[in-house]
Amino acid sequence: MFLTRRALGVAFSAGFSIVLAGPVAAQGQLTVYCSVQEEWCRPMMAAFEKETGIKVSMTRKSSGETYAQVKAESANPRGDVWWGGTGDPHMQAAEEGLTEEYKSPKLTELNDWAVRQWEGSKGRTVGIYSGALGFAYNTKLIAEKKLPEPKCWADLLDPKLKDEVQVADPNSSGTSYTMLATMVQIMGEQKAFEYLKALHKNINQYTKSGAAPAKATSLGETTVGIAFLHDHVMMIVDGAPMKAVAPCEGTGYEIGSMSIIKGAKNMDNAKKFYDWALTPAAQALAAPAKSFQVPSNKATPIPPQAPKLADIKLINFDFAKYGSSDERKRLLAKWDAEVKNLPK
C-alpha cells in the first residue's frame, strides 16, 4: 500500500489539493479586458471603483489578443466589458456576434465618428477615442544627413531615404492595415499599390508591432517611422529627438472602441461602466496617463499635447467597408502578393 499511497499523494497534490480561487460570478463585480496602455487602464478602473463601489478585475491585453480570447471563451464568457484598443478587432467581434448590442444614453454627447462606429457595428461597439495616422522623423538623423524634412506621403519616396523608413506588416498590425486602407482611399486602389511598391524600396523592415516604428525612430534605428501620431507623441513627450508629421495629402485614423461581451456575467455593471466610460470625467483620465488620443465625448477637454484633429486633414474613412473581413482579406492578400516579396 505504501507505494500506491505515495503515488496517490503525488497525483493528489498535482491536481486537487491546491485551494484556489475559482471562477467568480458574485454581484458587485466587473471584469474588464483593457486594451490600452497599462497606466491608462489602472486609473480608469480605480476611478470607476471609487465612483460606483463595484469591484473591477482588469486584465490588460492588446486588442488582437483580447479578440482571440473573447472568441475562444465565447462558450462560457469570462469578461464583461472590452474597453479600448483599435476599432478593427471590435468590429470583427461585432460581425461575429461575440459582443452585445447596447444603446447608451450618452450616445448623443459623442462626436460623429464615434456614433458612426456604433451605427456601423449595429450597436455592438462604440468609439471612445480616435487617433490619426502619420509618421515621425528623427531630427538628429535628418540633420546629420542634411535631408529635407518630409511633410507628405509622397516625400517618403525620396531615393535619399532608401532603407530609412519603417512601418509594420499589415498582416500583423492593425496600424499598418489602417495605412493600407488609407492609401487606397486617398489614391484609389491601383495608385495606392503603385505607391506602396515604390515605398517598399525605402522600407528597412516591416515590423510586427504597429507602434514599433515609433520606438525605432526614437532610438535612431530608423530615420522615419510610420505609426499613429499619439504613439509618436508619447516618445516625444518622453524626450526623444523626433518630430511627428500629419501628412499633407490627408490621412486615415483609428477609432478606439468599447464593447460589451455577449453573455457577460455582470451585465448590469457592464452597462454602468459603458455609460460611465463615455463621460467627459472618465475620458479626461487619458492625458495624465500619457495617452494623447482625441476623446469621443464632445465635452471632454482635448489634451494640449494631442495632435489636433482640426489641424490634420482627415479623410472620410469608410470603416464599414475597410473593416469588413472580406475586404481586409482581399487587400492583405494583394499586398502579400504584390508588395511584400518584391525585390528591392
Binding site: 471584469t31 497599462e38 497606466e39 486584465t59 490588460r60 491585453k61 489578443e65 516618445m235
Partner: peptide
C-alpha cells in the same frame, strides 16, 4: 500565458511585455 492570465493571476512577463509595448 498571455491568454491564461487573469486579473488576479497576472504574470510578471505579461507586465514586462506591456511595459515594452508602451516604450
Amino acid at each position: 500565458v498571455i491568454f491564461l492570465v487573469s486579473a488576479k493571476y497576472n504574470m510578471a512577463t505579461t507586465y514586462i511585455v506591456g511595459r515594452v509595448e508602451a516604450g
